[in-house]
């Protein structure tokens, strides 16, 4: 088994026949079910087809030294995106704690069907590593773009719509502040957790996305400086701070579990921190699909 897993795709296609390949694929298909702990239901996922979207890029952009909105660009998602239908639940997370692979939470949820909250990036990464070991698949956090693609119509473009007013940086701060105040006033104050599914499905069948739980992404804080023509002059990144996505995009230090204490002095922090994972698509997903197409039923 272990040997089979280590074989790379080129080795397989060049050295093994179709029959052997089919045998290996059958083994691989069987593998996840066998590896799962008896009480661990396989995560439900949604497969979002490849495509394009107009996306407000993440990152702090400045043009000629003045802060500006990040560019809105056509972004292509090249491969199918397999993402958890629901956020990881308190019950899921408890199994990882029981396996001593995840750290205890400060305030465990009162019921298992609530999404797990109060988790840091470290906690989410621990869970992904554990789930990957348990299932034999690769689970990881989505990038900012992947999250936005899965969120579809629920993604909120939170650009200020202001061009940098070189003379008055406060316009930007005031606009940010008003937007956040607006969000809170418009029911963004509904911070009570709902059992998974409580915020409904979006057009891709992804549940609860952009509800009242912000989700960790694998995307680090970026700073991009542009010249007057909009060409990139330089970019720095800080992976101590990651993008969290929800009703708006926020930046969060990796060890923060409770965003109320992670906010800055005048911002409106996310309500809760949770996560969902994407399953890395590999040749093992492609092979059975190919086989199904080639072999008679």
């Amino acid at each position: 088994m272990a040997t089979t897993l280590r074989l790379s795709l080129p080795t397989l296609t060049t050295s093994l026949g179709l029959v052997l390949l089919a045998g290996a694929a059958a083994l691989l298909l069987a593998a996840p079910a066998r590896r799962l702990a008896p009480d661990l239901p396989p995560p439900q996922t949604v497969l979002v087809r490849p495509g394009t979207m107009l996306h407000r890029l993440d990152g702090d952009y400045s043009r000629v030294g003045q802060p500006v909105d990040a560019p809105r660009q056509l972004v292509r998602i090249h491969r199918p995106l397999e993402i958890m239908r629901y956020q990881v639940t308190a019950a899921d997370y408890a199994r990882c704690i029981a396996a001593s692979a995840c750290k205890r939470l400060d305030q465990p949820a009162s019921r298992g069907d609530l999404p797990v909250t109060g988790v840091s990036l470290t906690d989410a990464s621990d869970y992904a590593a554990w789930l990957s070991r348990e299932t034999g698949a690769t689970w990881r956090l989505p990038s900012d773009r992947e999250w936005a693609y899965a969120a579809g119509s629920r993604f909120r473009d939170d650009a200020r719509g202001l061009d940098a007013d070189a003379a008055n940086p406060a316009l930007r701060w005031l606009a940010d502040y008003d937007r956040e105040a607006e969000r809170k006033a418009a029911g963004g104050n509904d911070v009570a957790l709902r059992p998974v599914g409580g915020f409904g499905l979006n057009e891709h069948g992804v549940a609860d996305i952009a509800g009242n739980i912000w989700e960790w992404t694998s995307t680090c804080l970026r700073r991009v400086s542009l010249d007057a023509a909009g060409r990139t002059l330089g970019e720095t990144s800080n992976c101590g701070i990651h993008v969290v996505e929800g009703q708006h995009r926020a930046m969060m230090t990796f060890f923060i579990r409770n965003p109320k204490s992670g906010g800055c002095s005048v911002g409106t922090p996310p309500d809760h921190l949770g996560f969902r994972l994407v399953r890395e698509r590999s040749w093992r997903d492609a092979v059975p699909e190919m086989l199904r197409r080639r072999l008679p039923a």
């Binding site: 400045s62 003045q66 400086s225 330089g234 970019e235």
Partner: peptide, 8 residues
Amino acid sequence: KQIKAPAG
């Protein structure tokens, strides 16, 4: 005044 925005 911010003389130079944060950059590399």
